[in-house]
Design a protein around this nucleic acid. Structure first.
Lengths: 152, 152
DNA sequence: CTAAACATTTAAGAGAGCTTAATTATATGG
DNA sequence: CCATATAATTAAGCTCTCTTAAATGTTTAG
């Protein structure tokens, strides 16, 4: 079996395991917070992208710009994002995460990580070292990632 | 910094990167297929759990059993699941993935993995080896996982 | 300066998804 | 055997999210 296939296969197995748990945690968190799929998508998008326009966001999510605008209304209402006029082109709005939005997203991350505590307990220090360097490698080599490992 | 913190921190970093991409791919796939959050949660749950009852599923998803029942109607309608009477207790229904459901889920997995192709290209064979064994370790040591790495 | 293009918002309406309450069918315990 | 508990479904109603179409304000090109 070529290394490429093995890489894929192992990754796929890990992802199945990981996704089943994180999707569950994320959906549960979303329901508790009263967040829709689009809202979750928006928050996740903003953590990485930093900011976005309304139409761009709609395109990213696969909905109309009208739908995006309405959804942003609600996110502004609950204080998770901020929407201000773009000074460079006043037709556009600049959408960013609010402080509260960042906090909420961090909480959802912690909710997803909670089951990792158990994994942590099952590993020796040496095993953790091994995993840490593998993860660093993956972070560094992921295309389109401008935040190298350990720099945050 | 203790190894525990470092493990967490590195994992967290990797997860942010990974989740932003997989959540996006999953939500987009869900929208294309016309699947709601509950439906996605159901399909993911079934891949691991194998089967479930209606109320149990509702509890897992955080909705009423009535809501679960209605959602299952739609999943049966589009042929993603099967719902049959439990012979042991005829009050209950046994919900399982249909063949089509398995196929759809696999496709969604591939959609999530598509960006990995680029990661793959950026890695040497030796680096892949390193990542593979780290992933295997994580799979094996994840609590409540009854499918050891490489056995599927 | 004006016409066309563009970004967003507003409005109206359709459908999905949820809830509670009532209903049906089955199982269990005295 | 009957009363009670349990599992699932059905029904009615509400809210959320989407769509399309029209409206508003801004920029750009001629």
């Amino acid at each position: 079996m070529p290394r490429r296939d093995q890489f894929y296969r192992t990754f796929q197995e890990w992802i199945e395991l990981f996704m089943q748990r994180s999707i569950h945690a994320t959906l549960q968190y979303a329901r508790e917070q009263g967040l829709s799929m689009s809202m979750i998508g928006t928050l996740f998008h903003l953590t990485r992208a930093g900011h976005t326009g309304v139409s761009d966001l709609g395109q990213h999510l696969g909905v109309s710009s009208a739908a995006a605008s309405q959804m942003l209304d609600r996110l502004v209402e609950v204080g998770l994002i901020e929407r201000v006029e773009d000074p460079d082109d006043r037709r556009m709005k600049k959408v960013t995460l609010s402080e509260k939005g960042q906090r909420v997203l961090e909480e959802s991350l912690l909710a997803r990580l909670r089951w990792l505590e158990e994994l942590d307990e099952n590993l020796t220090d040496q095993e953790k070292e091994q995993i840490i360097s593998a993860l660093r490698l993956m972070i560094a080599k992921t295309p389109g990632n401008d935040c190298p490992a350990g720099t945050k």
